[in-house]
Design a binder for these strands. Structure first.
Lengths: 294, 294
DNA sequence: CTTCAGCATGCGTGTCCCTCATGCACCACA
DNA sequence: TGTGGTGCATGAGGGACACGCATGCTGAAG
């Protein structure tokens, strides 16, 4: 007496868009096997294969393609309508509190090319170098935080691990002989003030006594990287954040070794607020982005 | 970590269309309390009231109206796409085997004004006075049967109880004095040949020895009623089927007493076939029709 | 005033679905 | 050709969710 396998249909849409189960699972906030089963259920229900299982992910079959072309828009419409109906009063944007560096180097670029607005969600970013207490800011819907978690009054989940490695400007590298981590002792190390400094944790992993060189501190990571790019010294690069600098060539990674930090990025919301579909949508998008970024 | 309450959204669409929980429950094939809860869940999730609970059923609030206006089409689209994707090969109609009288007096009129075709399901009716063995007819998707059930090789559910009462033409009533069931002994009783005759069961309930009058039999109920309308005698009217005759005035109900027969209409499908969404859709529609017809 | 229709709620239970662990196929690289 | 890695499928077990039943409640009709 089964009805439409709705959860399977949902999974189908997400998988079709993602192209692989891992990213879809992240978006759906369930595990890969669970997604796999959902797809199987739908395929059995329809009596048709929807995906070709290929060594590198899945791709839609002809039937799947056709089904998806009709289903996708309908699903978006459903989402959009549901978002719009949420506290129909609340036509305001979905506000997220983030540290400036993450906003500039990760969040904003991805938001720009996302489908979120199409899905009916307007996202507004508020940056703050310090951790904002969500309980005192009713206008904020959630926050993205860098640290160990949990934070009082919030629930959340880790969504992006951080790798760290020393970086410096090409010019700086050319002028100084930096052959092994031990050479760092003679250099100026640029750290962050507001955010906990990541040098100690890196030195610990690298097996060297904490850096003996001179230290410089800046309030925010953006300034840290800018300083390094200007040739002021060696900074500790946090992997997703520093990438734009590496890609543009303004900074170089000194050695291949990297360290996965204990701190990572977390998405948190207030414990005392009902989880809204706006939050669902945002998290879904966020998880999908990180899964693909791996 | 909840996702969209899809089952609740489904329920919302169905309830919004039905206007009351009972009919919606029938369509969804679940109980009334279950539907009630689904709606509550959605309302909590959205943070908005969707229905005004009125003494006579529910009606959409303004917010609900708006939500439904966007959701309804999307939902239909989803259904349609899913139907279309079902064994993408099978573009043929959904074939139902029915007895002729039921087709003519109940099914066809309702099908005509239904949204089924809009939803993407083409229904084809095959009438047969005898019970067709579904196992021998691969082209049939399901059957509607009058009887006690179950039938070998099938699963199904009762969906329409039958009330029975004697009927005769206005002319016949004028010519003969028919004041109590006992008077039937002197009259010609018109029964059916193929279908089991319903007179005996009626007499048993009425507390009278089986009718002593002359009997006439016809192959199908349509002919039975036509014969009665022509003044040939008294027929036993089966409630949903004989109604068109009563409404047009061609037949009159003799007494207010009625009997609910042990036999009723059942919707059945083959046990050995996976329940398809086409069947789901058809059943959903059928259940909704009977709930409203009550 | 009684009865009935129709929706809400408490409680117990069954079932579905998810997670974890493992297996398998394919590709890349040595 | 072996080895590691990626990505999906499958088996077992458990937990949460949602359904059904019984009952209560409210407003209207007889």
């Amino acid at each position: 007496m089964s009805q439409l396998p709705l959860r399977s249909i949902e999974a189908f849409v997400v998988v079709a868009r993602a192209g692989n189960l891992a990213q879809a699972a992240a978006r759906l906030n369930i595990t890969v096997p669970a997604v796999s089963r959902r797809i199987q259920i739908l395929e059995r229900y329809l009596g048709a294969k929807l995906f070709d299982r290929q060594p590198r992910g899945l791709s839609l079959t002809e039937a799947g393609e056709k089904y998806f072309s009709e289903l996708g828009p309908a699903w978006d419409c459903l989402w959009k309508a549901t978002i719009a109906a949420t506290w129909s009063v609340r036509r305001d944007a979905f506000k997220v509190s983030v540290i400036p560096t993450f906003a500039a180097n990760w969040l904003v670029p991805r938001l720009a090319r996302s489908r979120l607005r199409l899905a009916g969600l307007e996202v507004e970013i508020e940056t703050s170098p310090d951790i904002v207490d969500l309980r005192e800011r009713d206008d904020l819907d959630c926050a993205i935080r860098l640290g160990l978690g949990p934070w009082p009054g919030t629930v959340g989940q880790r969504f992006l691990p951080i790798k760290a490695y020393p970086v410096a400007s090409p010019d700086f590298v050319a002028r100084n002989r930096l052959e092994s981590p031990a050479d760092l002792a003679r250099q100026t190390l640029i750290g962050s003030g507001h955010q906990p400094d990541f040098w100690p944790e890196w030195f610990r992993h690298a097996g060297i006594g904490s850096g003996q060189g001179r230290h410089k501190s800046f309030d925010n990571l953006q300034l840290v990287y800018e300083a390094a790019a200007a040739g002021l010294g060696v900074a500790i690069g946090l992997d997703p954040l520093v990438r734009p600098y590496l890609e543009s060539g303004r900074l170089l990674r000194l050695w291949r070794d990297d360290v996965t930090l204990s701190r990572s990025f977390h998405l948190v919301r207030r414990t005392d607020r009902v989880e809204s579909n706006r939050f669902d949508l945002f998290r879904s998008w966020l998880m999908g982005e990180t899964a693909v970024a791996a």
